[in-house]
C-alpha cells in the first residue's frame, strides 16, 4: 500500500487523541469526530487491497467479476459511520445542555449537575 494513506490515518488518530485530552467539551467533540474518521479509514485499509474503479458488485448471474474490491470492509464501515454519527449527535446535545447548566466549556467546571 502507498505510504500516503497510513500517514493520513496516523495524523487523524494523533489529532483525535490530542483533542480528546483537552479540557474543552467542544474539543472533545472535534476529537471524537476525527477519531471516527481515523477508525473508518483504518478499517478501510484492512480490506483486500485498495482498488480503483472496481465496485463491490457481482455480475447479474452471480458470478464474480474479473476485478472487484473487498465488500466486507465497506459494509463494516457503513455500519460504523452511522453509529458514530448517532454518538456524536448525542455528545453534541450533551455539550449543549452542559453549557446551559454550568455556563462553561471547561470540563473541570462540570463538577455538579445539581443546577440542571
Amino acid at each position: 500500500m502507498s505510504i500516503l494513506l497510513p500517514v493520513a490515518i496516523g495524523s487523524l488518530f494523533a489529532g483525535a487523541i490530542y483533542l480528546l485530552l483537552r479540557r474543552s467539551v467542544v474539543k472533545l467533540f472535534l476529537g471524537l469526530t476525527l477519531l471516527s474518521h481515523g477508525v473508518h479509514l483504518l478499517i478501510f485499509s484492512m480490506g483486500d487491497g485498495l482498488r480503483r474503479g472496481l465496485p463491490p458488485i457481482t455480475a447479474a448471474d452471480g458470478s464474480t467479476l474479473p476485478g472487484t474490491t473487498d465488500p466486507l470492509v465497506q459494509a463494516l464501515i457503513l455500519t460504523a459511520i452511522v453509529i458514530s454519527f448517532g454518538i456524536l449527535a448525542f455528545i453534541l446535545a450533551l455539550a449543549y445542555r452542559a453549557n446551559q447548566a454550568v455556563k462553561s466549556d471547561d470540563l473541570d467546571d462540570m463538577v455538579t449537575t445539581d443546577r440542571l
Binding site: 500500500m1 505510504i3 494513506l5 497510513p6 500517514v7 490515518i9 496516523g10 495524523s11 487523524l12 488518530f13 494523533a14 489529532g15 483525535a16 487523541i17 490530542y18 485530552l21 481515523g38 483504518l42 485499509s45 484492512m46 480490506g47 483486500d48 487491497g49 463491490p56 457481482t58 464474480t64 472487484t68 474490491t69 473487498d70 465488500p71 466486507l72
Partner: peptide, 29 residues
C-alpha cells in the same frame, strides 16, 4: 498523540504487509 499516530500508521502498514491470512472477500462475492 504524535507517538500514538505514528503507531497507528505503522499498524496500518504492518497489517497491509501481512499476507498470512486469506481475505474473506471472495466468499462474500
Amino acid at each position: 498523540a504524535t507517538v500514538f499516530g505514528v503507531m497507528m500508521a505503522m499498524l496500518v502498514l504492518a497489517t497491509s504487509s501481512n499476507t498470512d491470512f486469506p481475505s474473506l472477500a471472495p466468499w462474500f462475492l
